[in-house]
Design a protein around this nucleic acid. Sequence first.
DNA 1: CCGTATTATGTCAGAACTGACATAATACGC
DNA 2: GCGTATTATGTCAGTTCTGACATAATACGG
Lengths: 109, 109
Amino acid sequence: MKHTKRVRLEAHGWRVGSAQEFLDLSAEEAALVETKLRLSRAVRERRATLSQSQAALAKRLKSSQSRVAKMEAADPTVSVDLLLKALFALGATPRDVATAIRTPLPSAA
Amino acid sequence: MKHTKRVRLEAHGWRVGSAQEFLDLSAEEAALVETKLRLSRAVRERRATLSQSQAALAKRLKSSQSRVAKMEAADPTVSVDLLLKALFALGATPRDVATAIRTPLPSAA
DNA sequence: CCGTATTATGTCAGAACTGACATAATACGC
DNA sequence: GCGTATTATGTCAGTTCTGACATAATACGG
């Protein structure tokens, strides 16, 4: 279950216009996906550092363990808003968030 | 129409638990709101720099002028996801986004 | 192995967000 | 002032996201 760019676009009722426009939108979508990946990784790392279970973080967030798992899996049904809420709940500062967003993934394109 | 923390929490069906918990959640909510403000400001600045109208940006985003206006007004009905989509559509890099998130507002608390 | 603690995956009703539209308010040149 | 271009505010039906639940998979000590 890995809706990526393509699927997401189709879900939005896409009908490709100019190739240029499509490519640009792809790049923008890719940047957003990459950002989500970085944030989700940051959530997992901070939580692990604090030795908290997903269930514990979920409780603090008034969310559920399954949703935390999806956050860390960068599931497309998880919004950036939720990822940020999780990070702040884990004690991250805006500076920490900024760093996470700038930090490239281990081996991602 | 300025739903802030309080209203948002109530909208979520809040019932205050311990004072400590409430305060913590307030701080976290505040951090998120502050982040949204910074991003919305970044959208306005980038768009202005490019001398684009809200309508032009909206078209590029496949959105509407009114929603771009709400983005720049940091309206609570605008998600961080949408703000990021706008920034990337305006040519921002993850690094730019990170900078925006770290940059304090002119005179905010 | 077996318990059990933790994490992953699927599903869905309800809540939040979105684009679009209408229309009001502002800004700016003429 | 008047036109008009741009931005602001309000509303709402349709889509997306969310929490919760069930349950499967994995990790790990005994």
